[in-house]
């Protein structure tokens, strides 16, 4: 008797969330199968890659490949425009690193001005990432969401401490998409979605960042979190976990020693640029097979590799 594989498509599906507007808008999520299980059912919306641009430009960048890619760019806006031409890029992630009150403390007004300038210059969907300071982030998300009304941006992220503020402004008042962030805590991931939903933010306006880490840096916790979240969403039809997953990869991988230690200090490790690319590729591919619907990355070679990886598995 011939072997007939049993299809494992689920009755439940991940919410399809649209980011951006017009021709360049993208949809993430929508699948009713495990990541890349296209043999069980078609996956309409492939995972996407957003290119991270720091509001500091190339300041602090150790990668020759990244510097070469943006050669000739005179501003962050130039870089954002250039990033759109990166092979495999689908969105731009503007990272307000310098807004941190413990650092440069860039003003909310300056952040808004930059966000507007970038939004005016690019056609791809925009993701806005904060500086990890709870209060400042809430202020930035509020002001940027207001200024970029109609652009359908994703703000990263609403956390347990500021979800009311971020959810009410970005999600409700300004009709943007909200990322709900928890740190490898499946119960909190679900709870945040419940709270945003009780606040009135529609499920189709919410993405999840369930945690991020670089490969080798406690990644197994993230991996098991991704697995458990997808299992609950699909096998247990858990509506509070059916939001697509967005994972910032580059902010983690470019902060570890493998990607930063100069060649003169670690000659046995080989090319610094290659190491950075490999850390991004390893981490992003592991996130994607775990269920991330969008990964945020930096290096053009890594983005191109992951893009091919996605296409070849679809």
């Amino acid at each position: 008797m011939a072997f007939t594989p049993k299809k494992q498509a689920f009755n439940a599906k991940i919410n399809a969330v649209t980011l951006g507007t017009g021709d360049k808008s993208i949809v993430i999520g929508g699948e009713n199968v495990l990541p890349f299980y296209t043999f069980d059912a078609p996956i309409a919306n492939k995972p996407r890659i957003a290119v991270e641009i720091s509001d500091k430009g190339l300041e602090g960048c150790v990668s020759d490949g990244i510097k070469a890619f943006y050669a000739g760019c005179e501003s962050v806006v130039d870089m954002a425009v250039k990033a759109q031409s990166m092979e495999g890029a689908s969105a731009i992630c503007l990272h307000f690193e310098s807004a941190d009150p413990n650092g440069e403390n860039k003003s909310v007004e300056d952040c808004v001005a930059l966000a507007k300038a970038v939004a005016d210059a690019v056609e791809m969907p925009i993701l806005v990432m904060g500086c990890k300071n709870i209060e400042k982030d809430a202020q930035i998300f509020n002001a940027v969401s207001d200024a970029l009304q109609g652009k359908n941006i994703l703000v990263l992220s609403a956390r347990e401490e500021n979800y009311k503020n971020v959810g009410a402004s970005a999600g409700l008042a300004y009709n943007q998409k909200v990322g709900a962030e928890s740190a490898v805590d499946i119960n909190l991931a679900k709870q945040l979605n419940v709270l945003l939903s009780q606040l009135g933010v529609p499920d189709a306006s919410v993405c999840m960042n369930v945690g991020s880490s670089a490969a080798g840096y406690g990644f197994e916790y993230l991996s098991s979190t991704l697995d458990r979240v997808k299992a609950a969403a699909l096998a247990q039809s858990d509506k509070q976990l059916q939001m697509p997953i967005v994972t910032p990869v580059s902010p983690e991988t470019w902060g570890v020693k493998e990607s930063m230690s100069p060649e003169e200090e670690s000659p046995e490790w080989g090319s610094l640029d290659e190491r950075g690319i490999e850390m991004e590729v390893c981490t992003a591919s592991a996130c994607l097979v775990g269920g991330s619907n969008l990964v945020i990355m930096r290096h053009p070679a890594a983005v191109a590799t992951i893009s091919k990886f996605i296409d070849s598995l679809m």
């Binding site: 499946i186 119960n187 709870q191 419940v194 509070q240 976990l241």
Partner: peptide
């Protein structure tokens, strides 16, 4: 059968 969240009684 269901993943715990603090608000589980409300959903």
């Amino acid at each position: 059968n269901n993943l715990y969240a603090d608000s589980y009684l409300e959903i």
